[in-house]
Design a protein around this nucleic acid. Sequence first.
RNA 1: GCGCUCAUCGUCUAGCCCGGUCUAGGACACCGGCCUUUCACGCCGGCGACAGGGGUUCGAAUCCCCUUGGGCGUACCA
Length: 472
Amino acid sequence: MSDLRVRFAPSPTGYLHIGGARTALFNYLLARQQHGAFILRIEDTDVERSTQASTDAILQAMEWLGLDYDEGPFFQSDRFDLYKAKVARLLAEGKAYRCYCSAEELEQKRAAAAAAGSSRFGYDGTCRHRTDQPEGAPFVVRFRTPQTGTTTFLDRIKGPISFNNEELDDLIIQRTDGTPTYNFVVVVDDVDMRISLVIRGDDHINNTPRQIHIYQALGAPVPEFAHVPMILGADKKRLSKRHGATSVMVYKEMGYLPEALVNYLVRLGWSHGDQEIFSKQELIEKFNLESVGRAAGVFNPDKLLWLNEHYIKTGDPQRLGALLAEILASRGISTAGGPDLAAAVRTLQDRAKTLVEMADGAAFYYSRPTSYDAEAIERQVGPEQIAALDHLHAELASAGEVDHAGVEAVFQKVLAATGLKLGKLGPAVRIALTGGTVSPSIYEVVAVLGSGETAARLQSALGVFRAAIKTA
RNA sequence: GCGCUCAUCGUCUAGCCCGGUCUAGGACACCGGCCUUUCACGCCGGCGACAGGGGUUCGAAUCCCCUUGGGCGUACCA
């Protein structure tokens, strides 16, 4: 057990998105590697925008990705007393002060500053030295930020970063309604939870110097920081819905495997030489902050798809089969009593990039064709095929259950007897068995379906084929 | 506007810290071919980048400066 303590602190104002998932993943990986602690904290100080549904969605997504945490989830809304006490202490020590400026007033000042072409839009410090306390007037509490000197920290990813304190204004730490704000609670909690390393998106870099001042005002040690670059869309703009799915769980719905998303996300911004494929165990061993890139990365759905394809291809048929059954069930197709799921999966692993695609390809195994591709019949089925199909039906009906080699032997027999090439018979069999022209290898299909089911389907199809040929 | 930050193929990146081994490597996508009972898989090959300009140096993708471009922040959001 090392003393590394990291946390992931999402705000429940929406689902867990790609960027958040990657931040969570980096935290998780490092915690597991160093045998430290990974803490989950829900930042719901904004009562207006936080919802229970979002919290649930985030928790679900974390679970699906396999990012289990050691402590939490903690909710900031349960901790308002702690924040209140800290604000009171800062107030008492003169490190914070009441500000009676109204939001409207401030907005006007900002607008005026912008109109005047000023480079300073921050709070002007009107109430900083105010000594009177208007009776009953609404106020916010502002943190008294140092106005001179510089604040520097050594970012584990970006290197040394420093700010001139004069660029910083006195930020609000408690709203008019008494609730605390982000920059304050994040510090109070990170101190309270003894976080030793803060890994978060680099959109927080600008908040860091302000937070460092708060750590100091609280007399607490400043943790290390590691700011990971943003994820952008194809147009290099911040990733948003416009760029396609950004919700982790939507990828689950689209038939992605969690290991594919994890692998993709970690490689977006981190590398280990030329290696592309990493198991979670490998990531825990190899992940490091030093190899995280400093530049923002563009989300590339194609590469994610490729990884998903890889994991489907190499995945365990049993597990994939269970996942497949769920999807089929949601389409009203029961797999109970049908062909062995793992066997069906094996015939589809090289042909599907997603579980959804696999379900498309597997449906015929569990529900007989209700119609047959007419155009295909016209092209592939003639008197010769009908005769051969008849022959095949007879052979299969008397063959009992056969394996792949057995199926091949039966076909060879039929082919020899009818003088047809497989290229002439295969397509007709495929139409008869699946209703269409696309499926796994016909021998595999027959082996998975079993001779009984195959014979039954052949018989039904034969009736349709004969009728089709007569009218032609 | 101001502040912070980033910059190698279309994209993700290796290389950069410790200059020469880089006519810059890998992956995705794309293009071509092979394989083939459909569809795929697979295999082989191809296209394709050091943002620009100055320095330093015998020598720079690698070090320094400037420019340009991108991202983020600039809330009583987080």
